[in-house]
Design a binder for these strands. Structure first.
Lengths: 235, 235
DNA sequence: GTCTATACTTGGATAGAC
DNA sequence: GTCTATCCAAGTATAGAC
């Protein structure tokens, strides 16, 4: 067997028929993964996130990432097989981390106004930490790398699903909810989220984006006043 | 007046003391532009647009663009000084072309429902021709190249201005218009537009985006019914 | 103005020592 | 698992022939 690179690679990336990687960081049964290895991978993934955030997709080279990780360029290929796979692992990390946060936050939400409040806080977090930038860079960068598009698309799916759940939960039972399909609205909300992220980064337009949430809050209040006190109370 | 492309080019290369958009070899005052030169530049700009669209920012190299133009790699540097400058020229071309179209289309619009109709047609055009992809790629790519962000931002400005005018025109006089500042709404609309473009490209999600316009049409109709026949009739 | 040739740099990826 | 060294491909940019 000589190198467990193949094994490790299997475990790590779960590559099947396709050319591109499937899962993210650990996966599989983790018996054989040394803590040292895990630590390095972690460092590389974190550095990849930071690099995507700061230097964008085009600037996310193995060398740039490794340097930021205080590590070695060759390790990128040892642990992830290719740069793109590392970037996908980074996207996985961001995605699961954020969705967990979103779920926890929305769990406590009942009314549309509350939903907007929570969304505002979350958006501010995302913006400051640059999480969604990673997503945006991967989507935009996908054009440059054959096969990457499908991988990224698969990782965005859960974002739609989450948005749909959140919308369904807070406005699903209302008259508006029966006119507008939650799925379509969710799609639009995710699109808006991505777009705001892009524009915010382009200049010091952070405040401009946040202003929109203020307006949304007003509209949510208006909406609640019209359609009744709490949408959850009419099962 | 022949081509105002030359004028555009002048502007592009005359950007002040910054590091960006320094002039290349030629291009002084443009009295001396030969038709041959203009033709080549045109070819390169068009190829740059196409390359940004298909291969993204990271794939838009001088070689790739020149090959698509059936031209020579060295000409990129001769005519534009650098690859980024050519990409900015491409963005300029797309931007002015599209805004002209938008203006013409919105000029005939009165009611919100009409605005949505026009926007739908325009969006479908943009999507199929990939115009906005160019914009998206440049915004996302700006992270990788120091100084590019400001240049791109300057070129997006007119898009906000246009959106604001369009919104002001069709809902400005209504009760909703006095609650929601047209500028903020415009910012959100542009963001949504960019986000939908991104997502549409990620998969065959074209229809999903277009569905949103259908819903918007319904809402516009509802809005008109509530706030009166034609917003323009109450000056 | 356009082409070929070339200098120089960066990046992906592998080999092999430790 | 990690590091150094290295190969090779691709990219930017310039020089000089046509």
């Amino acid at each position: 067997m000589a190198f467990d690179l193949s094994v490790c690679f299997e475990q790590l990336l779960n590559v099947e028929g396709g050319e591109m990687a499937k899962t993210g960081t650990s996966s599989r049964l983790v018996d054989t993964v040394s803590p040292r290895s895990a630590g390095t991978r972690r460092l590389l993934v974190d550095a990849a996130i930071e690099t995507l955030r700061v230097d964008g997709y085009a600037g996310a080279s193995a060398r740039a990432i490794a340097e930021r990780a205080g590590s070695n360029q060759a390790l990128v290929f040892y642990h992830f097989g290719s740069v793109v796979n590392l970037l996908l692992a980074a996207l996985d990390a961001v995605s699961s981390d954020r969705l967990e946060q979103y779920d926890a936050a929305v769990d406590k939400v009942g009314s549309p106004a509350e939903l907007v409040d929570v969304a505002t806080a979350i958006f501010r977090q995302d913006l400051d930490a640059g999480y969604v930038t990673v997503l945006v860079e991967m989507i935009a960068g996908a054009s440059s790398t054959p096969g990457l598009g499908a991988e990224v698309a698969a990782r965005i799916g859960p974002w739609f699903a989450f948005a749909e759940r959140a919308i369904e939960k807070s406005v699903g039972g209302s008259p508006l909810g029966s006119v507008l399909p939650a799925g379509d609205v969710a799609y639009g909300v995710v699109a808006l989220y991505l777009g705001l992220e892009m524009l915010s980064h382009l200049e010091g337009e952070r405040d401009r984006s946040l202003a929109l949430f203020t307006h949304a809050k007003q509209l949510a209040g208006l909406f609640e006043a019209i359609s009744g006190p709490t949408p959850k109370e009419t099962p």
